[in-house]
């Protein structure tokens, strides 16, 4: 199969993928493709199956949860080099728990989650690297979610 050099260059530019060998990039490139989203286009919807993990290259995509009484609530916005849809590579694959929509015209890398997992299973070193990076993304999101829960701005600064 032809190797898309341009795609590999894109992959290598993602800090998340640093330290991965060229050989593995070539393998990942086999099941990675570029994806353009127009403003307001939906990447995936709540309830969809979890097929892909994405890296934003350009633009901005919002992760939304729809609440019947409150409308669409944006809980996170991903910008360039942010990962979206990380739960697709965790062992328990559910369905999408949120909707993701492009806020502006955006470009993403979409990586086949099942094939990435298979590659990780077959190459434990690479698997460890990828999973450490995924855990770091999750830790960041969890921290952010916790801080959102803290609702910093709830209390005002001191005064008489």
């Amino acid at each position: 199969m032809d190797i898309d050099r341009k795609l590999i260059d894109r992959l290598r530019a993602v800090p998340w993928f640093q330290e991965i060998s060229l050989e593995h990039f070539e393998a990942i490139a086999q099941f990675t493709r570029m994806l353009d989203l127009a403003k307001d286009e939906i990447l995936f919807r709540e309830g969809d199956s979890e097929d892909y993990i994405y890296v934003v290259l350009k633009g901005r995509v919002a992760i939304e949860v729809n609440s019947p009484d409150r409308g669409k609530l944006r809980i996170f916005t991903a910008e360039a080099l942010d990962v979206v849809g990380w739960s697709a590579v965790t062992p328990v694959v559910r369905q999408r728990t949120a909707t993701t929509r492009a806020v502006v015209d955006s470009t993403l890398l979409s990586i086949d989650a099942a094939k990435l997992q298979q590659l990780c299973d077959d190459n434990c070193d690479l698997g460890y690297l990828i999973m450490s990076r995924v855990s770091s993304v999750i830790a960041g999101r969890l921290m952010g979610a916790r801080m959102q829960l803290l609702d910093f701005y709830g209390k005002q600064d001191c005064e008489e």
């Binding site: 409150r70 944006r74 996170f76 916005t77 806020v103 921290m143 952010g144 801080m147």
Partner: peptide, 16 residues
């Protein structure tokens, strides 16, 4: 921290 779909900017806490 909190937004609906009319907000095109970033959603997330400052330190993140």
């Amino acid at each position: 921290d909190h937004a609906d779909d009319t907000w095109d900017g970033l959603v997330g806490v400052v330190p993140m």
